[in-house]
Structure formats: structure tokens, C-alpha cells
Amino acid sequence: MIQKFTTLTATAVPLPIENIDTDQIIPARFLKSTSRSGFGDNLFYDWRYDEKGKLKEEFVMNKSEFRGPILVAGKNFGCGSSREHAAWAISGAGFRAVISSHFADIFRNNALNNHLLPVTVSEEMLAKIFQAIKENPRTEIRIDLFDMFVEISGTGHRENFKIPPHNRECMINGYDDVDYLVTLRDQIASYEQNKIDD
């Protein structure tokens, strides 16, 4: 089922670490499922749980004051492997958007294809968001995909973000690229024919 994304105003979970790679998001040993569901429980597994499977109290997701459907992370989020399981794990854990100053390319595409919105903000804005959440974990962040801005509620700090028009349309309307591409099969077949004739 494809979830539509228009606007979201909610509290956020801060993870001010840079270069969070997909092996941290979901370790390879949890990639053995042949379905798309069930990855949320293993999100950030080695940071969330100790060797005995007990919750590590110091990890942000295990602290009761930090809750919400927005993940805010340090720059270069999602670097490393192409595993879409990373996006499935984040969505599966209830997140609908990730804010960072820089996303790895493949992760960003995977997120978009799962209607998990990656929001790229400036370093300054990211620092402000972290600071606001640190000062008050109940700070709400507003993400508006219609007008493409992110705002720290109550502070007036606001910044526009970019997203390719096609991706934006898919997110807002809940469209899916597979269905669209299948409608192009004839056009793709004639491309193949022209290529051979070249």
C-alpha cells in the first residue's frame, strides 16, 4: 500500500552522528527475509540492543522523551550498501521522513520509492533543528511537501528544500514508478529497435 505525503507536523528523533551507513541502519545479518516487512524491529540493531538483546538505555530511540515520525540525522546519511532494507527498516519503525544535510544517492532513491521523504537542509538549519530538539524534545518540526519547506514550529526558523518534480508528484499522489514504466513498454520496444538499426 502506498502512503501519500503532503504535510507533516510532528516531534522528531535526533541522531547527530555523521556518515550513518546502511550497515548501522540494518546490519547485513538481518537481510535474510524475502518479504518487505518486519525490518523495523531491527532498525539500528547494534546501537539499540546489547549482545544479549537488551535495550541500551543511552541510545536515543530507547529514551522515552524522544518520539516521533521524523528522524533527524547527521550528514551523509545512508551511505554504503544499496540495500532497500534500510528504507524498509526506517519506515517499518514508524518514520515518515528523514532530515539531514546530505543523503547518499542510492538511499535517497530507495527512500523516495518507499514514500519515506528525505529532506535535505543546510548544515546551519540541521544544527538549529538539533539544538531545538535538545532544548525541548517536544519541539515540532513541520515538513510541507506542497510548498517544499521545513520549519521548526514556534521559532520561525524555516528553510526551503528541493526535490525533483517527478518524485514530488509521486509522493503527493501516491504514484508508483513500476506501473508507469509498464505503460511505456511500446515506447521502450521502439527504442530498442532504433538502437539495433543505428
Binding site: 518487505r36 544499496s82 540495500r83 532497500e84 542510492i106 520509492n113 514504466l181 509498464v182 511505456l184 513498454r185
Partner: peptide
Amino acid sequence: AFGIGTSEVEMVLASQSLLQTKP
């Protein structure tokens, strides 16, 4: 040559094509 996610694997299975932004 580039790596893709599983949704994109499905797109290529379905159409031998992908929607891509040019890097």
C-alpha cells in the same frame, strides 16, 4: 554501471528501464 534498490530492480524487471535523475 550503478547500484540500485529493490524497487528499482523491480522496475527493470518490468520494463528494462528506470526513472533516473542525471548525476
